[in-house]
Simulated scan of single mutants.
Amino acid sequence: MKKNLLSIIILALLVVNLAMNGFMLLSVMTTNSQTAKLISDIAAALELEASGGSGGGFSGSNSGTVGVANIATFGFTGDNSLTISLKPGADGKAHYMVAEVVFSMNTASADFATYGSSDSLTSMNDLVKAKVIDILSNKTMEELQSDLQPAKDEVLEAIQELYGSNFIYDVNITAIYQ
């Protein structure tokens, strides 16, 4: 009898514990959903600000991080690498840069279907090359050697403006200076 009474008390405490856990879960989930809504509203407001307020800007990635399955690349590598005459630096000598430029595209972007096809990329190839050469030729070898990131950002912004889209979200430049 003692064991049965103890079992009934334990069962009653388990039922009370289950009810309290259910109540706590319900109150936490309500608060969690309100917090998630607030965070998503803030993120949406920041994204509008980052893209110029009304979706008109092109700087930055269009989706934050892009999954590996959604990345496609094109660029000027190997035999198509670019030889660029750089602006004379402090030494007054003419310097050249042999650059391989690779653009990363987000295949999940709506604009990728329009601009990301091989025909479209081939037709814009000379314009893209001209933008890259124009930007990099206005830099000195010292500027590029000390920090290449500002030049990458400038190239990315120019290409996004050229296409009128940010489906191209990253640019990588590897260079050999002469």
Results as ranks from 00 to 15, higher is better:
Glu142Arg: 08
Glu142Trp: 05
Ser123Val: 05
Ser123Ile: 05
Lys131Asn: 09
Asp119Ile: 05
Ala113Val: 15
Asp119Trp: 05
Leu127Thr: 01
Thr122Ala: 13
Lys131Gly: 00
Met141Arg: 15
Ser123Gln: 13
Val128Asn: 01
Asn138Leu: 14
Tyr115Leu: 11
Glu142Val: 13
Val128Phe: 02
Asp134Tyr: 03
Asn125Thr: 04
Asp119Phe: 11
Ile135Lys: 02
Asn125Ala: 03
Ser123His: 03
Leu121Asp: 07
Met124Arg: 07
Lys131Ala: 09
Asp126Ser: 13
Asn138Met: 14
Asp119Arg: 05
Tyr115Met: 08
Thr114Met: 08
Glu142Asp: 14
Ser117Phe: 07
Asp111Val: 12
Val132Ile: 07
Ser120Val: 05
Thr140Gly: 07
Ser118Asn: 13
Ser123Gly: 03
Ser123Lys: 10
Ser137Gln: 06
Phe112Lys: 09
Tyr115Lys: 07
Thr114His: 06
Ile133Arg: 00
Lys131Glu: 15
Lys139Cys: 13
Lys131Thr: 00
Ser117Pro: 06
Ile135Trp: 02
Lys139Asp: 04
Leu127Trp: 03
Ala130Lys: 03
Lys129Asn: 04
Lys129Trp: 02
Lys139Glu: 09
Asp119Val: 06
Asp126Met: 10
Asp119Ser: 12
Asn125Gly: 01
Ser137Tyr: 04
Ser137Trp: 05
Lys139Met: 09
Ile133Met: 02
Glu142Gln: 14
Thr114Val: 15
Ala130Phe: 01
Leu121His: 06
Ser137Lys: 05
Asp119Glu: 13
Lys129Met: 06
Lys139Gly: 03
Asp134Gly: 11
Ile133Ser: 01
